[in-house]
Amino acid sequence: MERRITISKSSIARRKIINHIMLGLCALSVVLALIPLALIMFYTVKEGISALNWDFFTHLPKPVGEPGGGMANAIVGTLTIVGMASLIGVPVGILSGVYLAEFGKGMFATVIRFLTEVMSGLPSIIVGIFVYTIVVKPMGHFSAYAGAVSLAILMIPTITKTTEELLKLVPQTLREAGLALGAPKWIVTTRVVISAAAKGIITGMMLAIARIAGETAPLLFTALNNRFWHQGLDQPVASLPVQIFTYAVAPYDDWHAQAWAGATVLIMMVFILSVVVRVVAGGGKFTVQQ
């Protein structure tokens, strides 16, 4: 008894059509996703370009009614707060991710993993209020520290999750290869596993930083704002998102233009940071053999 499995010409033709339709839908989705991005970039730059000049980067805001002035203090403030938040959030996030992927077993790890997932869905304004309660109230005033803590809390779950997922992608055979050479587990983890996933982890870190750089709500409760250079990290400090918010809701046209300029600068900062980190970290290639 011979059985032959044949595929009819019409079904092959149908497959080809479906293939083309799906491919078209994929391309369409990419375009749809990119349209808002392109529009935002274009519109922000278009509206902000008139206020974007050297003064914008070097001068403090002028009082209402006086033309000119800039957001130098807010640019520095954002860099400071985001930098400090990264100093707290990146190590904690990466180390927790490494723990969950490589060492965490049993109930404790399960609980941590669950809490991380819950935390990544936490509304940022809640984090702001939380930090207000545990940092701002006891200190008695708003500060750059409080702002950094709130942003760090927001970035930790993202970094933890991406680190864990990326380390899990590293093939088990690489760990075995390292261990079989008589290397202790911590060396295998740092020199083999993390190094194999480094590029992805850095990308995850960048995404987390980019996400918190534009956060406004938590800063309203923690770093507040400051129309002048801040007088220390334990003092209220200006930041681009809060400054943009303040200027955008004000009834003055020149402030609106400056808000757009601030938004342009914020986007550019994130963009440049991504490019620089990508170039620097370009060496750590991740190749999985399948």
Partner: peptide, 20 residues
Amino acid sequence: AVTVRRRIGMVFQKPNPFPT
């Protein structure tokens, strides 16, 4: 275990050089 593995080496089924 680390000492054991120093003295007893291993080659695996699929080639697994460190990719980085």
